[in-house]
Design a protein around this nucleic acid. Structure first.
Ligand SMILES: [Mn+2]
Ligand SMILES: [Mn+2]
Ligand SMILES: [Zn+2]
Ligand SMILES: [Zn+2]
Lengths: 137, 137
DNA sequence: CAATTCATGCAATGGTATTGCATTGTTAGC
DNA sequence: GCTAACAATGCAATACCATTGCATGAATTG
């Protein structure tokens, strides 16, 4: 069994052509992708099916969502060991205001945050806007 | 001059009935509010005018936006000294998954984040989901 | 007061997110 | 293998939310 199918199976996601296609693309590109880009890439495929594939992948812990607050929701592969309904993505997301690129800062660990008494967190997301490495100077 | 007008003037926002109304409401409620809620509150007012009031307030450093990724964009008063085009809100936002409330955790300071070499940040936002104080137990 | 700039109201549009439903494909019990 | 149950897909429709255009009215400035 190839890597694509292995991941799908391990995450309890039924193996279908569409899902193989999308997961393969994420693995190959290792990029942050949104519905529109994927629709462009897979022109023959139905937009809604891609949409539901993304939702399923997110739900099952294969990808995680990134909201930049400007355009549509983006997604990237979970590198850590995420499970169904339980993501443990402890890295911030960077949105370059110059070139528009969005990336996972995998190397940066989210610093521990002390919540006020009585609060408990199940998800913490950090979004950073600024200039990326390529757009500096 | 009253407090409302003083703030508007200090932030270089022309004083109008709509703006007085919205700012007064934010000050009174001290809450996180979205366009829909404000439209409900000011039923006689035009939705678009409220919309543009929020955009203006944000631009001028009177309120800051909060994206929970679920519903519409919410807004809250800037407590720190924000200026036009330059917000310095260094606190996370909490979204309770039980009661749905959204609040500014003013007491929590955003921990310093070390970016990878070559990156520079102009805005950092942290969004936390979980159970709020009221919904614990 | 005249010229200009700004705010408002209403209509229209753009874009993204989400659902309904009929059809097709897949799985699992018999 | 056959059939019932279940899941995925494709297409259409809808629901929201965000944003813009334009005509009108109000305020400001010199
Ligand atoms: Mn990421
Ligand atoms: Mn806040
Ligand atoms: Zn860049
Ligand atoms: Zn709560």
């Amino acid at each position: 069994m190839n890597r694509i199918d292995a991941i799908l199976q391990q995450k309890s996601v039924r193996i279908t052509p569409m899902r193989q296609l999308v997961l393969k693309h994420f693995l190959q590109e290792d990029a942050v992708l949104g519905l529109n880009e994927l629709e462009e890439t897979f022109q023959k495929s139905d937009r809604i099916t891609i949409y539901r594939t993304l939702k399923t992948f997110e739900e099952k812990g294969i990808i995680h969502s990134i909201q930049n607050g400007v355009s549509e929701v983006k997604y990237a592969l979970c590198k850590e060991h995420c499970e169904e309904q339980h993501h443990i993505d402890r890295h911030p997301h960077f949105h370059c205001l110059v070139c528009g690129s969005i990336e996972c800062l995998e190397s940066v660990l989210l610093p521990p945050t002390i919540l006020p008494q009585g609060y408990s967190a199940s998800e913490i997301k950090m979004n950073i806007k600024g200039r990326c490495k390529k757009c500096q100077g």
